[in-house]
Every structure is written in C-alpha cells, then in structure tokens.
C-alpha cells in the first residue's frame, strides 16, 4: 500500500525523468572526454556506465526522507500498524522501480553507445539492476541520517560513496567481462544484504529524526 503510494509520488513528481536524463547526459560526456576511439571506449566505457548510474541514484536520495520529515508524514507513519522498517523497505523498493529499473534498462543503450560487446548487454542490464538495489539499500541509510540537514546533498554523497565501492567493483567486473559468474553472485549478495540491513539502520535513524 505504501509501496504504491511511494511509487506514485516518485512518478508524479517527475522524479523518474531527471535521473534518467542525468544518466544519459553523463554517459554522453564520457566519449567527449576520452575521445571517440573505439578501442579506448571498449575497455573504459562499460565501467563508466556504472559510475554514471551510481551518481544518478545518488542525486535522488536527498529528498527521499527529508520531504516526509518536513511535511509531517513521517510522524504519521510512526503511528502506523506496519513497522517502520517495512515502510522504509517499501520506499526503497519503490525507488528501485521508479529509478533503479529504468536506469538499468537505460544501461543497455548507454553500454552499446560506449562500445560494449552486444552479447554482453543482457548481463550488464541484470548486473545494473542488482547494483541499483545495493546502492539504494545503502542510500536509504545515508538519506535517513541526513534527513534533517538542509542542503545535505553533498553530505549524502560523502557518506554513501565509500559504501558504493563493493557494488561498483563487482558490477564493473561484469561490465568488463571479468569473472562474470562470481561477480554476479557476489553482487546479488550485496543487493540482498543492503536491502535487508539498510532499512533497519535507516528506520533507527528516522525514529531519531522524528524527535
């Protein structure tokens, strides 16, 4: 129920198009910075899709809980029958559907444009989808601890970016075609762990924010 509402709020607020556009814009800058040489793009391009996707998710985190804290919705969810952890997880899943999944799908044309081998596109999209889940799980915590901070965008980035390291490492390995099976398995583990533990830490932080 809250999942559907969160999803509708994210769609309604134009929250889907902005990260998608950001992602494509960042991808476009890559060949402009490196030169359009195919060999160079082939080796460096696909992992850069990951950087662009990570930054695009990061940009959606700042207002995730801040709006709920400011307009009083957070207080209402504290009086709900559902545990706050579940509501936070629902919000994370809604963010994945509204932003993570479109970004993963947009990863296909972006990877092709950056000269990734066509037969690897499918696995890149799957890995991006898993990576987005891991980013969002960690991002929930970053968004929750900074919910009370005005203009906390840079702060969220600083807090969250080191925790993006594992998914970036394994995701880029998939994109570069190195040890794909192992990397995908670990990436799945990262996503599940982040979605399981992130909401617990984020809910604890949000209870404090409501004080």
């Amino acid at each position: 129920m809250t999942f559907r509402r969160d999803l509708a709020l994210m769609w309604g607020g134009g929250g889907v198009l902005a990260p998608l556009g950001f992602f494509l814009g960042a991808t476009m800058l890559v060949p402009l910075a490196m030169g359009p040489e195919r060999a160079l793009l082939q080796s460096a391009g696909p992992p850069l899709v990951w950087i662009a996707a990570a930054l695009a998710v990061l940009a959606t985190l700042e207002r995730l809980f801040q709006a709920d804290l400011e307009d009083g919705s957070l207080e209402q969810t504290l009086l709900s029958r559902a545990p706050l952890e579940a509501l936070v997880l629902a919000k994370g899943l809604a963010l994945w559907c509204a932003v993570g999944l479109p970004l993963a799908l947009a990863g296909a044309p972006a990877a092709i444009a950056l000269q990734a081998p066509v037969e690897r596109i499918g696995v890149i999209v799957v890995s991006l989808g898993l990576g987005m889940a891991a980013f969002i799980g960690v991002g929930l915590v970053g968004a929750a601890v900074t919910a009370g901070v005005k203009r906390g965008g840079v702060l969220i980035a600083l807090i969250v970016l080191p925790f993006f390291a594992p998914p970036i490492i394994f995701g880029s390995a998939v994109a570069a075609g190195e040890q794909v099976g192992a990397a995908l398995a670990i990436l799945t583990g990262c996503a599940l762990a982040a979605l399981a533990l992130g909401p617990i830490a984020a809910a604890a932080a949000l209870r404090l924010q409501a004080e």
Binding site: V141, V145, P162, F163, P166, F170, C190, L208, Q209
Partner: peptide, 23 residues
C-alpha cells in the same frame, strides 16, 4: 545517535569493502 548509526553501518561494511577491494 545518527553518527553512531553511521559508524556501526561503516563497521559492518568495512570488511565487505576490504574483501571486494582485495578481489
């Protein structure tokens, strides 16, 4: 309290980061 939550999240994550960087 918020920093404490962040610190503990970091504590859980550090071995994971270490492992993935080694990999």
């Amino acid at each position: 309290r918020l920093a404490a939550i962040l610190c503990l999240v970091g504590l859980i994550n550090l071995p994971i980061i270490k492992f993935s960087v080694d990999w």
